[in-house]
Amino acid sequence: MAEKTLDCLGEACPVPLVKTQKAMESMAVGDVLIVNIDHSCAMKNIPDWARSVGHVVEIEEVAEGEWNIIIQKMK
């Protein structure tokens, strides 16, 4: 089970989401992607997208206004 971190701090929509989608494509089922973000919109649209596709998502607030989105590829 591989784990990858994607640094999207300081990036505005839709860049974090597009990068996440790209990164997920290159990963195998079961792999985990951690996306660091501080953009409040990405904090909503990345989990929304990942859940709609069927991945498992956890949002962790590492600091006020800064999140790690942990996505496990399910299919």
Partner: peptide, 28 residues
């Protein structure tokens, strides 16, 4: 989605609870 195998809460928080409380107060 209940049979998750994901292991979460692994990254170390960047701010301690005290720092957070202070930030909240300042921003409030």
């Amino acid at each position: 989605m209940s049979d998750t195998t994901i292991t979460i809460k692994r990254s170390t928080p960047k701010e301690t609870p005290e720092q957070r409380a202070r930030k909240r107060l300042i921003q409030f």
